[in-house]
C-alpha cells in the first residue's frame, strides 16, 4: 500500500506542475488573443475584419488537430524552446499550444456576454477602447472567465494524461507504465480515482470563485 502512495505522489506532483504551469502560460497568451478576437469583430469597439478573420482561421486550424498529433507535430518547436522533448517541462509546450486557442474561444464567448448597452455607455463617457477592455469588458465578465478557466484547466488535465503516454511524466505516464504495460490494475484504478477527485475539486473551486465574482 505504501508503495502505491510512493508511486502516486510524485506523479501527482508532476501532473499538478505541468497543468498549472501550462494554465499560467495559456492565460497569458489566450486572454489577449480572446480579447482581440472580440473587439476586432464587426460592430465592436475596434472592428478589423483582416485581424479577426486571420485569428479566427488560425484558432480553428489549431483546434482541429487532435492533441496527440499536435504534440508530435511540434516536436522540433518543443526542442527549440525546452531543449528536450521528454519530461514534464517539455510536455508543457504542446499543452500550452493546444490550450491557447481553446481558452481564446472561451474568453471570446465570456466577453460577448457583456451587455452592449454598458459598452455603449462607456463610449458615451469618452472611454478609450483600451479603457473599455480593462475597466468594462474584463471586470464585467469576471465570473464567466472564472468558469472558463476552470473548463480550460480540466481540459489541460485531460491533455496532460495523453502527454504522459509519450514520456511526459505525471499520472497519465504512471497509468500507462504500471497499469497498462505491467498489468498492475490497482495502479490504474488508483490513478483514475486520483484524477476523478482532482477534477471534482477543480470544478468545485471554480464554481465557488465564479459565484463570489458574480454580482448580477
Amino acid at each position: 500500500m505504501l508503495s502505491l502512495i510512493d508511486l502516486l505522489l510524485p506523479s501527482l506532483w508532476d501532473t499538478l506542475y505541468m497543468v498549472f504551469t501550462s494554465l499560467i502560460f495559456t492565460i497569458l497568451f489566450g486572454l489577449p488573443l480572446g480579447i482581440v478576437l472580440v473587439v476586432t469583430e464587426k460592430d465592436h469597439i475596434l472592428p478589423n475584419p483582416i485581424v479577426y478573420g486571420a485569428l479566427s482561421y488560425v484558432i480553428n486550424m489549431t483546434r482541429s488537430l487532435p492533441f496527440i498529433i499536435l504534440m508530435i507535430f511540434i516536436i522540433p518547436f518543443t526542442r527549440l524552446i525546452a531543449g528536450t522533448t521528454i519530461g514534464t517541462t517539455a510536455a508543457i509546450i504542446p499543452l500550452v499550444i493546444a490550450a491557447i486557442p481553446f481558452f481564446a474561444r472561451v474568453v471570446e464567448s465570456a466577453l460577448k456576454e457583456v451587455d452592449w448597452g454598458v459598452i455603449e455607455a462607456s463610449i458615451a463617457m469618452g472611454a478609450t477602447p483600451l479603457q473599455i477592455i480593462i475597466h468594462v469588458l474584463i471586470p464585467e465578465s469576471m465570473s464567466s472567465l472564472a468558469l472558463g478557466v476552470t473548463i480550460t484547466l480540466i481540459n489541460i488535465l485531460g491533455y496532460s494524461a495523453m502527454a504522459g503516454t509519450v514520456g511526459g511524466g505525471g499520472l497519465g505516464d504512471l497509468a500507462v507504465r504500471y497499469g497498462y504495460h505491467r498489468f498492475q490494475t490497482e495502479v490504474m484504478i488508483a490513478t483514475v480515482l486520483v484524477l476523478i477527485v482532482l477534477v471534482q475539486i477543480i470544478q468545485l473551486c471554480g464554481n465557488k470563485v465564479a459565484e463570489i465574482l458574480n454580482k448580477k
Partner: peptide, 22 residues
C-alpha cells in the same frame, strides 16, 4: 477630440447600463 467632447455630454439610458461588477 470626440472623446473629449463626449466627456461633457452626459447620457442616461432606458436600461440604465450600469456596471454590474461595480
Amino acid at each position: 477630440e470626440l472623446r473629449k467632447v463626449r466627456k461633457k455630454i452626459g447620457m442616461i439610458f432606458q436600461n440604465f447600463n450600469l456596471l454590474s461588477s461595480k
